[in-house]
């Protein structure tokens, strides 16, 4: 029994260590807007495409950082949407996304509070996130 508890604790420690960084939900934007209104949170959207190398770099090198994950998971509902598939097509048109990556922070009404993109590092992510919270 003792062995099992130790094993579980070890696995838990490892999994929490790996799962640092931004956690993205799989919901639609419409469902997320409703949830954001209920939870009084803002929405962060990573607008990406599969052929965008800088998008992959941003996801691998910035979204995975612990301080970025902690801040965004606490304050935002995070969505990652391919702008060439499903609702992404409509979102790209509505929010006039013309280059990738484009990062949007919306309020629960769907209004853009912050918009930023290429060349984003952890500091810029945190700064833009805080600016959006200040506008809320």
């Amino acid at each position: 029994m003792k062995k099992h508890i130790v094993l579980c604790l070890t696995l838990f420690t490892i999994s929490t260590g790996i799962a640092q960084g931004i956690t993205f939900t799989n919901s639609s934007l419409e469902a997320t807007l409703t949830k954001a209104s209920e939870d009084n949170k803002l929405i962060f959207i990573d607008c990406y495409t599969v052929w965008c190398s800088p998008c992959k770099k941003l996801a691998a090198e910035v979204f995975t950082q612990k301080n970025v994950g902690d801040f965004y998971n606490k304050n935002f509902i995070n969505l990652k949407i391919d702008m060439e598939k499903g609702e992404g097509l409509e979102i790209a048109q509505y929010y006039k996304v013309n280059s990738y990556p484009t990062l949007l922070i919306l309020n629960s009404e769907g209004e853009v509070l912050e918009r930023f993109g290429g060349g984003t590092d952890a500091d810029k992510m945190l700064k833009k996130g805080q600016q959006a919270l200040d506008k809320q």
Binding site: W51, S99, P101, T120
Partner: peptide, 12 residues
Amino acid sequence: YQACDPYQCFPP
């Protein structure tokens, strides 16, 4: 074509 720089890409 589809153009990119190290930080951003434009659609084809």
